[in-house]
Every structure is written in structure tokens, then in C-alpha cells.
Design a protein around this nucleic acid. Structure first.
Lengths: 114, 114
DNA sequence: GGGATTGTTGGGCGATCGTCAAACAGTTCC
DNA sequence: GGAACTGTTTGACGATCGCCCAACAATCCC
């Protein structure tokens, strides 16, 4: 029933985002990589593992990681046709935990030796 | 053999501290609380659960959490007599991941509504 | 409609996690 | 030496995790 609607997958409200859940969600190599990708590439990314160097993971596994990030409040997912457009909830995270996303991304860069 | 030595329990070198491990270590309510305590109260804290509002946890459980934090590079533990003096490795963490500890502590305060 | 595409859901599996309990080791003090 | 104290280690338990596979649902396109 392709009526052109763009539906948002369920996600927590800003005030319900818990630091513990965010850290737990990001304490995983795949999801930490996804964070970096979404921060750099923005909204137009979807779940296609080939684009993310996640070829080795089953599509359902990637879908699972996306759900963890979404449930923790890190990302927002919009249903567009057959695809999912995922973006970092940067403004909201910046409002709730100022500087957190920036520091995490900088830490990732520092660790990679950039 | 109380010869007055102060031995350091094994801990990773600065450059071996992994962001993923740090986030994983802190993605737990008990260890997040321990982080806040060490940041506020400093070195003279030891493992006594009564002082931390951790009365409900067995001493071996607390010991386990301390080891996780130490192995992740978050804390440093010095053996002093029968006690362990635990401190946040703040300078080293600030060097490796600038701003991370500050942001985490501020996020904890923000979440608590301070 | 029918096939192809994209992603979710549910089940299952081995690994890890958080917890407790019991045993152990080192230190302090009598 | 021996008792008390502090914390670690080991083993066990249920719960959760990360992963895959198969089945399903929704969409797009012919």
C-alpha cells in the first residue's frame, strides 16, 4: 500500500533516554561503527550491510543492532518504502547530554590515530 | 608480610585503553555509580559496599565490578595493607579521550536533574 | 497479480554477564 | 601462633547477548 507516508519507528522520548542505555548500546564494536557512520554520512544511510563494511553480518543481525540503537535513543528510523532511513538523534542527544556525541566521535578518531 | 609496600593491581597502559571497553564497562548501573563516586570522593575510597549504597551486593560482586573497571582502564587500584585504594585514572583518560570523563559526569548530573 | 527486494520477527545456539556462595590468601593485631 | 578482617578467586546459576537461519510482512515494478 505505497501511499507515500513516512512512518517513524518507535523510539524513546528525549527525557526517557538513559545514559546507561546509551553507553550499553555503544559498548559494542558494530554499533560503535554504526554511530560513526551515521555521524559522518547522515540520514540517507539504510541497513544495507555492504555499504558499511558489515558484509560479514546477517541482515537480521544488522537489523537487531539498529533496534538496539533506536531503543536506546541514539538513532531515529524512518520507514520510506522498502527502506529505512536512519539518522543520529544528534540535536536531542546534545540537548539531553551536551557534548556526549562530540566527545565520543572525537574519541573514536583519537583511538584510530587520526 | 606487612612491609609497607604499595602495590598496583594490573591495569592496561594508556594507549591500550579501548573506547569500546570503557563504554561497555560503564554501561552498567553499578559501575556507573562507582564512576560517580570515584570522581567525587577520590582516592581514599575502597571496596566497602556500605559506603556506596551498595549494601545489597555481595562483596565478591563488588570486587568483580571493580575488576571490570580496572581492566577497562577506568580506575587504578593500589593495595594498601588489607585495603584497596581505588581512584579514577582521570589524567590518563583525559589524555587519551579528552573530555570524555567530564561529559559523562555532567551527563549523569543532567540525568539526575541537577 | 506475481516476482523480486528490503527489512523485521521468532527460534535456537553458544558465549558472556551479573549475582551469590564458599573457599582461599594476605594483613593486622593480640 | 592464632583470630579477625578485607578482598580475590572459583564455581554455579539464570538472564541476556550476538549471531544465524527460516519465515514473514511490506513495498516496488513488470
Amino acid at each position: 500500500m505505497g501511499d507515500g507516508r513516512e512512518e517513524l519507528l518507535p523510539q524513546p522520548d528525549i527525557q526517557d533516554i538513559q545514559l546507561e542505555k546509551v553507553l550499553q548500546a555503544l559498548g559494542d564494536p558494530v554499533r560503535l561503527k554504526l554511530l560513526a557512520i551515521y555521524a559522518r554520512e547522515g540520514e540517507q544511510c539504510d541497513c544495507d550491510p555492504r555499504r558499511f563494511g558489515l558484509q560479514h553480518l546477517h541482515k537480521s543481525t544488522v537489523s537487531h543492532h539498529m533496534k538496539v540503537l533506536r531503543d536506546a535513543g541514539v538513532t531515529s528510523t524512518k520507514v520510506v518504502g522498502r527502506n529505512r532511513h536512519v539518522r543520529l538523534r544528534r540535536e536531542e542527544l546534545d540537548e539531553r547530554f551536551p557534548g556526549l556525541v562530540d566527545v565520543l566521535l572525537a574519541s573514536l578518531d583519537a583511538q584510530a590515530g587520526v
